[in-house]
Write a protein that binds this DNA or RNA. Structure first.
Length: 898
RNA sequence: GCCGGGAUGGCGGAAUGGUAGACGCUACGGACUUAAAAUCCGUUGGGCGCAAGCCCGUGUGGGUUCGAGUCCCAUUCCCGGCACCA
């Protein structure tokens, strides 16, 4: 029997021989085998001994965020799928009923853009990619219950998007509204707030414009409070994701109240989190878009106000931000009356007040608000402090707590009391009331694009907006093959297709027009995890009973980039579906794990080094990888970059960067697995770093993985005959080296089980490596024994979720069944108790000696033994012993005077 | 500015308040080999010492404790997110 040869290393990539484990030949064999035995086929019910069916009491729903079908995959794509596969196999071994499904987030712009670029239809492009991606997953040994595959661009699926939309419409949660919306000039479509990052479209990167359009919205704001407070029910979510969602929902508590405009019937409503500071409100500010602006502005100020409003409207979000936050504004010419003290205060217009938040107007309290302070300073407005700052306070606006001053009946009260008092006063005098506000806005879901779910609504001249009757679902997306028909033109491409939009009104029967917009693709991904529970159901989105069996997802794995978008929308949809009685779960994902990216070494391009300074020739790459324009050799070295001399003599700058198609630094799955094997790839990914950290894929890491698996292979292969000849062992009768080995096994079982359950895969592998080292030492001295054989078999079981092919191959040398059908090794707690232990002896907190002590030794005896150690004696000297601290089975600390 | 997370050898990283550096990578030395690769053995935080052993060491400064990488206070830096949200 030969080594587990790395075919690439030995230059024998295509050599298949019978006497060596060649992953090239063996891995596909086991992959086929798993498919044949139905590994990871999810089962809701299980036969018990009496032939009755009953739900399996233990279920595990392991889910990895489904991808856009993007063709050939690289190792960066596969990290999370590998993790999901590992967990699914592990839970299978533990006897759980496992759901590990897969699908494709197939609608959306990538398909359209590819269609436009290559002149193929989005559907053809999508399905070709699905096929390629599936192949990569298969090669990696990743197994799913493919019978539940979900592809969102198929009517089987998206008809239920339409169904859910109609249900929301019935509940008043889907509505149409005319408003200023985010318009992406590159995508030629509107975007949701969540899809605008720093004022730019999240995919196109184009500066987003404001357009006034009538669009469909989902009323996620109705769920703001539950989306916020239920975050506290998710202890297995990363703190940072919860923090991001909290910030996005942006709850603030305060009051909403009104100011009378002097000489007008109009009142200005404002929201404030600090109503207690109302006596310090020395002016008011309206957003430029505020509806009262035109109404109240005096003729003298009209020209200035109009100019300001027009300018503000033309400015993009980014432009507003780039202007260094310098306050701008203009006076309307009118005054309002402060209801607290009757003072006349001027009403201004400024773009630091946002139209979309609160009421679009504020009372400005410069004494307690830094922005108002800056505005007041710039325009010479009055500043009155209403909270007493501490004597040493040297800032401008004072935001902290303190006793109220200049505030009539609030004087002396601290913030909380003052707030309560003023709100009671407002409510008593009909001026306003306490109120909670959220930053979260309703979700704009209309898109003026082709490749998405048609919105199931009909516009009838007589009846207005009429929902498509349920029995007419799905409203199918017509197949457009001509690229020009898909091209975005500022309105939906479907608006050019009467064969799609011309229809009869379901209410009056007259000719009507379908809505030609499609839904945001985030609708597709907001409930797909529920469809997996019952993916083939033709009558409803899913059978509630099946959903209740599987939900919630026990472990969800995906990228942190979805912290707000997908994860918030999914929580919203789940709560809605719960409310209409379709699922009991109120939260979709009980455990969430955000994995770190996979990086690869990347050629940033040729550089020239003059003295200490590095000069880049490929400026585009340099900028893309965010490398500073001027860089010294020292800085480059510190950042982990390397200069490499290429064969042609040129010097190139290399650094680790996230694997991506555009950088061309991805290690492609197909070629790698065919040459080196899937198990090696899996170990490389899982061992290199904790899974939440980014990992750098390196040749050295691959070598390490290979050496490890090679040693495992030889552990079995080199001693196969002897191993097979061993009989049973009796754990109770083990002694000496046998007992120690058995103990190490159970320590490893404990550690590996706990680590896998906590997704600490790197330390689980480290524990397996340690056990392998121990086994090697044992074998050298004891040879092959019954207990050794037992350890080998447990070893293969524990390795199986990490390196399934090799484990299955070796397991089959002993058993004629899958390693995944054998129960996970049971922990023998008794085995963890050793006969003896190493006592660490400290003198005044410093380690001065170690000695092996029998586990049965009494504490007195241990103290005596410790003092006998020569080095311990020396450090005690003749000094007085103050006290001794004994930690059983671990440590004795002798504290001496001086 | 606010919020979240960090800082441990040459590198990735281990350590329920109890032996800091598990496991691996790199590097170096050795065995095997005609040679190389692979494999195996050894060394690998710094300093002193022939050795036994000693001193120092987890960003920085304090504190709590018999004992601190771990807990507390302060501080610096790094990464991520948010940012005129009243």
């Amino acid at each position: 029997m030969n080594q587990y040869n790395n075919p690439l290393r030995t230059g024998e990539a295509n050599m298949v021989t019978t006497d060596r484990y060649n992953p090239h030949g063996r891995e596909p064999k086991w992959q086929k085998y798993w498919d044949q035995i139905g590994l990871l086929r999810a089962m809701e019910v299980q036969k018990d001994a009496g032939g009755q069916t009953r739900p399996n009491p233990k279920k595990a729903y392991i889910l990895v965020m489904f991808p856009y079908p993007s063709g050939d995959l690289h190792m960066g794509h596969l990290k999370n799928y590998t993790m999901g596969d590992l967990l699914a196999r592990f839970r299978t071994q533990q006897g759980y009923s496992v759901l590990h499904p897969f699908g494709w987030d197939a609608f959306g712009l990538p398909a359209e853009n590819a269609a436009l670029k290559f002149g193929v239809s989005p559907a053809d492009w999508t399905f070709a990619n699905i096929q390629q991606s599936t192949e990569s997953l298969n090669l990696m040994g990743i197994r799913y219950d493919w019978s539940r595959e979900v592809t969102t661009c198929l009517p089987d699926y998206y008809q239920w998007n339409q169904w859910i939309f109609l249900k929301m419409y019935e509940q008043g949660l889907a509505y149409r509204k005319k408003s200023y919306v985010n318009w992406d000039p590159v995508e030629q479509s509107v975007l949701a707030n969540e899809q605008v990052i720093d004022g730019r479209g999240w995919r196109s990167g184009a500066l987003v414009e404001k357009r006034e359009l009538e669009q469909w919205y989902l009323k996620i704001t109705d769920y703001a409070e539950r989306l916020l407070s239920d975050l506290d029910t998710l202890p297995r979510w990363p703190e940072k994701v919860k923090a991001m969602q909290r910030a996005w929902i942006g709850k603030s508590t305060g009051a909403e109240f009104e100011f009378q405009v002097k000489g007008h019937a109009a009142r200005i409503r404002v929201f404030s989190t600090r109503p207690d500071t109302i006596f310090g409100a020395t002016f008011m500010v309206l957003a430029p878009e505020h509806e009262l602006v035109a109404q109240i502005t005096t003729p003298e100020q009209k020209a200035a106000v109009e100019a300001y409003v027009t300018a503000a409207r033309l400015k993009s979000e980014v432009e507003r931000q780039l202007e260094d936050r310098e306050k701008t504004g203009v006076w309307t010419g009118v005054y309002a009356l402060n209801p607290a003290n009757g003072k006349e205060i001027p009403v201004w217009i400024a773009d630091y007040v946002l139209a979309g938040y609160g009421t679009g107007a504020i009372m400005a309290v410069p004494g307690q608000d830094q922005r108002d302070w800056e505005f007041a300073e710039k325009f010479g407005l009055e500043i009155v402090r209403t909270v007493q700052p501490p004597p040493d306070f040297s800032g401008k606006a004072y935001l902290e707590d303190g006793p109220a001053i200049n505030s009539d009946f609030l004087n002396g009260l601290y913030m909380d009391d003052a707030k309560k008092r003023i709100i009671a006063w407002m409510e008593g005098n009909g001026i306003g009331e306490g109120r909670v506000n959220y930053r979260l806005r309703d979700w704009l879901i209309s898109r003026q694009r082709y490749w998405g779910t048609p919105i199931p609504m009909i516009h009838c001249e007589r009846c207005g907006i009429v929902p498509v009757p349920y029995e007419q679902l799905p409203v199918e997306l017509p197949t457009l093959r001509d690229v020009d028909e898909i091209r975005p033109k500022g309105k939906s491409p479907l608006a050019a297709h009467p064969e799609f939009y011309v229809c009869d009104c379901p209410q009056c029967g007259s000719q009507a027009r379908r809505d030609t917009d499609t839904m945001d693709t985030f609708v597709d991904s907001s409930w797909y995890f529920l469809r997996y529970a019952d993916a083939l159901n033709p009558n409803q989105p899913f059978d509630p009973e099946k959903a209740d069996f599987w939900m919630p997802v026990d472990q969800y794995i995906g990228g942190v980039e979805h912290a707000i978008l997908h994860l918030l929308y999914s929580r919203f949809f789940t709560k809605f579906l719960h409310d209409i009685g379709l699922v009991q779960a109120q939260e979709p994902f009980e455990g969430l794990f955000t994995q770190g990216m996979v990086q690869g070494w990347t050629d940033v391009g040729e550089v020239e080094v003059s003295g200490e300074t590095i000069q880049f020739k490929n400026l585009e790459r340099r900028a893309k990888l965010e490398i500073p324009e001027t860089l010294t050799l020292e800085e480059a070295r510190k950042s982990g970059a390397e200069l490499r001399t290429h064969d042609d003599g040129t010097v190139h700058f290399w650094k680790a960067a996230t694997m991506s198609k555009s950088l061309g630094n991805g290690v492609m799955v197909g070629p790698f697995v065919r040459e080196q094997g899937a198990d090696i790839a899996r170990i490389t990914i899982l061992f290199a770093a904790p899974p939440e950290n980014e990992m750098i894929w390196t040749e050295e890491g691959v070598q390490g993985a290979w050496r490890f698996l090679n040693r495992v292979y030889r552990m079995v292969a080199e001693h196969l005959v002897e191993l097979k000849a061993q009989g049973d062992h009796n754990p109770a009768l083990l002694e000496g080296a046998d007992k120690n080995l058995y103990q190490k096994l159970h320590q490893t079982i404990k550690k590996a089980t706990e680590d896998i359950e906590a997704l600490r895969f790197n330390t689980a592998i480290a524990a397996l490596m340690e056990l392998l080292n121990t086994m090697g030492e044992y074998r050298k001295e004891q040879g092959i024994t019954p207990v050794y054989r037992h350890v080998v078999l447990c070893y293969l079981q524990m390795l199986a979720p990490f390196a399934p092919h090799l484990s299955e191959e070796l397991w089959h040398q002993f058993h004629n069944a899958s390693v995944f059908s054998a129960p996970w090794p049971r922990l023998d707690e008794a085995a963890l108790v050793a006969d003896s232990f190493e006592l660490v002896v400290q003198v005044s907190g410093k380690v001065r000696g170690k000695t092996t002590v029998s586990a049965q030794a009494s504490e007195d005896e241990i103290r005596r033994l410790a003092r006998e150690l020569p080095n311990v004696q020396q450090h005690i000297g003749g000094k007085e012993v103050l006290k001794e601290i004994y930690i059983p089975h671990k440590l004795l600390n002798i504290v001496v005077k001086g």
